[in-house]
Measured scan of single mutants.
Amino acid sequence: MTEYKLVVVGAGGVGKSALTIQLIQNHFVDEYDPTIEDSYRKQVVIDGETCLLDILDTAGQEEYSAMRDQYMRTGEGFLCVFAINNTKSFEDIHHYREQIKRVKDSEDVPMVLVGNKCDLPSRTVDTKQAQDLARSYGIPFIETSAKTRQGVDDAFYTLVREIRKHKEKMSKDGKKKKKKSKTKCVIM
């Protein structure tokens, strides 16, 4: 069974824990209790493949930012979460993405942009803004509501699919490099 290491990042209060708990335990946590770091595991079937999701729910508070490099190193894919009623959390996505790329030393890291709290009427981040940002990053965008469960499975499952595509691409690139290195030079 394939294991996928997913990391949920975003500013404090955007609903990272609520999304994760909704996926794992099928219930909505409405009281806000700032996370330092929590880890969850769940076995699911995605596109006919049974897999184990190892999900790291991270601290959004700035005082825990020193811990970010460590979990970013171990993560295979990242859910970059903002709240649709919090423009600052949307603007912060850029910083999370840049930090992930720096730590992973790669421009090509599996990510999904997630606009959470889409059940709320007080939207300050337009869907088109988020779609445009995701398009500019070359990553999928999904709106979710941890409260109603809308888009929750889709967000995590899409990230797994992005990781699969990335692994497939990397193995193809690896095979191309191996083929090239088999060419021999004969000096007579």
Rank of each mutant, 00 (worst) to 15 (best):
E3T: 09
E3R: 11
Y4F: 11
Y4M: 15
Y4N: 07
K5C: 03
K5G: 06
L6F: 06
V7S: 12
V8L: 05
V8T: 15
V9P: 02
V9W: 02
G10M: 01
G10D: 02
A11W: 10
A11T: 14
A11L: 13
G12Y: 09
V14Q: 13
V14N: 12
S17L: 00
S17I: 01
S17T: 02
S17A: 00
S17H: 00
A18H: 02
A18V: 07
A18S: 07
A18E: 00
A18F: 00
L19H: 13
L19A: 14
L19G: 13
L19D: 14
L19K: 13
T20P: 00
T20M: 02
I21F: 01
L23P: 00
Q25Y: 12
Q25M: 06
N26M: 06
H27M: 15
H27E: 05
H27W: 14
F28Y: 08
F28S: 01
F28Q: 01
F28C: 02
F28W: 08
F28I: 02
F28H: 02
F28A: 01
V29G: 04
V29F: 09
V29Q: 11
V29C: 11
D30P: 13
E31V: 14
D33E: 02
P34K: 02
P34L: 01
T35Q: 00
T35L: 00
I36F: 01
D38S: 00
D38M: 00
S39G: 14
Y40A: 00
R41I: 03
R41D: 01
R41V: 04
K42V: 05
K42L: 05
K42C: 05
K42E: 04
Q43S: 13
Q43G: 11
Q43T: 10
V44I: 14
V45A: 12
V45F: 07
I46E: 15
D47V: 04
D47Q: 10
D47E: 11
G48A: 08
G48K: 10
G48N: 10
G48F: 05
E49H: 14
E49P: 13
E49W: 05
E49Y: 12
E49D: 09
E49V: 09
E49T: 07
T50S: 09
C51P: 13
C51T: 07
L52I: 14
L52K: 15
L52V: 14
L53E: 06
L53G: 10
D54H: 04
D54R: 10
L56D: 01
L56G: 02
D57R: 00
T58G: 02
T58Y: 00
T58S: 09
A59G: 06
G60P: 01
G60L: 00
G60M: 00
Q61E: 08
Q61P: 03
E62W: 03
E62Y: 04
E62Q: 07
E63D: 11
E63C: 07
E63Y: 04
Y64I: 02
Y64E: 02
Y64W: 08
Y64V: 02
Y64H: 03
Y64T: 02
Y64S: 02
S65M: 11
S65D: 05
A66T: 12
M67C: 04
M67V: 04
M67I: 03
M67Y: 05
D69A: 05
Q70G: 12
Q70T: 13
Q70I: 04
Q70S: 15
Y71N: 09
Y71V: 07
M72R: 08
M72Q: 09
M72G: 06
M72W: 06
M72S: 09
M72E: 10
R73K: 08
R73Y: 13
R73N: 12
T74H: 08
T74N: 12
T74R: 08
G75D: 03
G75P: 04
G75C: 04
G75T: 04
E76Y: 14
E76T: 11
E76H: 11
E76P: 03
E76R: 05
G77P: 01
G77N: 02
G77Q: 01
G77E: 00
F78S: 01
F78D: 01
F78M: 10
F78T: 02
L79G: 01
L79V: 08
L79K: 15
C80P: 01
C80W: 04
C80S: 05
V81E: 13
F82S: 13
F82P: 01
A83K: 08
A83E: 15
I84R: 09
I84A: 14
N86C: 09
T87A: 10
K88V: 14
S89V: 04
F90V: 11
E91I: 15
Y96C: 15
Y96N: 01
Y96A: 06
R97V: 15
E98D: 05
E98L: 03
E98R: 12
I100M: 15
I100S: 09
K101R: 11
K101W: 09
K101Y: 13
R102S: 08
V103I: 14
V103C: 15
K104L: 06
K104C: 15
D105K: 15
S106T: 13
S106E: 13
S106P: 04
E107A: 09
E107D: 08
D108N: 10
D108M: 11
D108A: 12
D108C: 08
V109N: 07
V109Y: 04
P110C: 04
P110V: 04
M111L: 07
V112W: 02
L113Y: 15
L113I: 09
V114K: 02
V114C: 07
G115K: 03
G115V: 12
G115M: 11
G115F: 14
G115C: 13
K117V: 14
C118D: 12
C118F: 10
D119F: 11
D119K: 04
L120M: 10
L120V: 15
L120E: 10
P121F: 09
S122Q: 14
R123E: 10
R123L: 09
T124P: 08
V125H: 12
V125D: 10
V125C: 08
V125M: 10
V125F: 08
D126M: 07
D126V: 07
T127A: 06
T127H: 05
K128E: 06
K128Q: 07
K128G: 06
Q129S: 12
Q129A: 09
Q129Y: 14
Q129W: 09
A130E: 08
A130W: 14
A130Q: 13
A130L: 11
D132M: 06
D132H: 05
L133M: 05
L133C: 06
L133V: 10
R135S: 12
S136I: 08
S136L: 12
S136P: 15
Y137G: 13
Y137H: 09
Y137C: 06
Y137L: 09
G138T: 03
I139F: 05
I139D: 04
I139W: 06
I142V: 10
I142S: 15
T144D: 03
S145Y: 09
K147R: 09
Q150V: 08
G151C: 06
G151W: 07
V152Y: 11
V152P: 10
V152S: 10
V152N: 08
D153Q: 09
A155H: 09
A155W: 11
F156H: 12
F156I: 08
Y157Q: 09
Y157H: 08
T158N: 06
T158H: 13
T158D: 03
T158K: 08
L159P: 01
L159I: 06
L159S: 02
R161Q: 03
E162R: 09
I163R: 03
I163N: 02
R164G: 07
R164Q: 05
R164M: 10
R164A: 14
K165G: 08
H166Q: 11
H166W: 08
K167R: 09
K167L: 05
K167H: 09
E168W: 02
E168M: 09
K169Y: 15
K169V: 09
K169I: 06
K169T: 12
M170C: 05
S171G: 04
K172Y: 07
K172S: 11
D173E: 06
D173M: 02
G174E: 14
G174T: 15
K175A: 14
K175S: 05
K175L: 13
K175F: 11
K176F: 04
K177N: 04
K177G: 10
K177A: 14
K178Q: 10
K178S: 06
K180T: 03
K180R: 09
K180D: 09
S181P: 12
S181Y: 15
S181Q: 15
S181D: 10
K182F: 06
K182R: 06
T183W: 01
K184L: 02
C185F: 05
C185S: 15
V186Q: 14
V186I: 12
V186N: 09
I187Y: 13
I187G: 14
I187K: 14
I187H: 03
M188Y: 12
M188D: 14
